[in-house]
């Protein structure tokens, strides 16, 4: 029991945690609620990942294979943890497939849920076919064709609206989703590569391509791919009589209202807390922070800790997170869990 770690969620963070635990010589039990491994990058059909530029299926495929091949890993797909008894060092988890797992520690890599654009009806998603999300454009890139869903035409103009479901007190999302700026500038380049005649406009309040993403994504997109950045938060998306979409807002640099025709409008959707978080909090007996993500313990010496001893959390379960950092956190939590289990064993001996 004290040499087994339960990992919940098989996305980038969970796969890294599982590989980390097994690599340290302990047993790992990986529980994934979907019937496929790989998490959101696979389930949502992402194209090339930021910042590596590798196709999601290749990159995640390697992560999955690493876990499948490693000794000491047991994988339950299409299953959820429904109950957790015991305490750090001797948990007993009940899984929905009827199995029980004895484990010393639990790592929650339960990720996030994409913001549902239906919650911002004024931006046209669900009303107009040619208003789509970044996830849908990722899928278009995978399919190798950028097209307007309404009639399949290649768009002359694409507008990407940033901060959809982020930084918006109106809908109770007071956080920055951290990665949408970088993802959007990357998508702008991918759109231009697939469809050189298309002009891409990014409507922004701020551009937050932090760290090394600045020149590799923002600058490159603007300087080499001629993406246009317009400082305006769009107020409304409507349709013109000719069937094109109209984005309305105030261009804050020209100080004038704008009504600009577009062919395709893309919502750069943010990261919500996993919609199952209330249930997860109840099952695992942990607290959520005020936005609904999993609450962190003091981070300096209890890295990846939650409010309950022996339970760790990683990646986008803790708040908007990049894939790369989720992977690092998975590896870090594995280390931390193994450390704590060793300490427990020594204490008992």
């Amino acid at each position: 029991m004290q040499n087994t770690v339960l990992v919940v969620g098989a996305g980038p963070a969970g796969l890294a945690a599982a590989a980390g635990v097994a690599g340290a010589g302990m047993n790992v039990v990986l529980v994934e609620k979907e019937d496929r491994l790989g998490g959101t990058p696979i389930l949502s059909g992402y194209a090339k990942l930021v910042p590596s530029g590798e196709w999601a299926k290749d990159a995640m495929g390697r992560m999955i294979k690493r876990v499948e091949d490693v000794r000491g890993a047991t994988i339950h797909k299409g299953a959820k943890v429904t109950k957790l008894d015991g305490e750090a060092g001797r948990f007993i988890a009940t899984i929905s497939n009827g199995k029980t797992v004895e484990c010393g520690a639990v790592i929650l890599a339960t990720g996030f849920t994409h913001f549902d654009s239906i919650n911002k009806p004024e931006w046209g998603f669900g009303t107009f076919e040619d208003v789509v999300t970044t996830t849908q454009v990722e899928q278009m890139v995978v399919a190798g064709k950028i097209a307007c869903p309404s009639d399949g035409r290649v768009p002359d103009r694409v507008a990407i609206l940033l901060c959809v479901g982020s930084r918006d007190r109106q809908i109770g999302r007071e956080w920055c989703s951290k990665i949408c700026c970088t993802v959007s500038t990357n998508l702008a380049m991918e759109i231009k590569e697939l469809s050189p005649q298309t002009d891409v406009f990014i409507y922004y309040m701020d551009i937050r391509t932090f760290g090394l993403y600045e020149d590799r994504f923002y600058w490159k997109s603007q300087e080499e791919f001629k993406t246009k950045f317009v400082k305006a938060r769009i107020a409304e998306v409507t349709k013109s009589p000719d069937g094109r979409l109209l984005v309305k807002g105030e261009d804050t640099l020209v100080k004038r209202p704008i009504v600009i025709p577009m062919d395709l409008v893309v919502h750069a959707i943010g990261m919500d807390p996993n919609e199952d978080n209330p249930e997860i909090a109840k099952v695992f007996g942990i607290a959520l922070e005020k936005h609904g993500f999993i609450e962190r313990a003091e981070h300096y010496t209890n890295t990846c800790g939650t409010t309950r001893r022996g339970i760790y959390a990683v990646g986008a379960a803790l708040g908007p997170e990049t894939i790369d950092d989720s992977i690092s956190q998975g590896q870090a939590a594995a280390m931390r869990a193994v450390n704590d289990l060793h300490a427990l064993v020594q204490k008992i001996a």
Binding site: R157, D199, F201, R256, P257, I258, V259, I260
Partner: peptide, 9 residues
């Protein structure tokens, strides 16, 4: 109206 209605791309 003071709307800007198009860009010259």
């Amino acid at each position: 109206p003071r709307y800007l209605t198009d860009y010259d791309d």
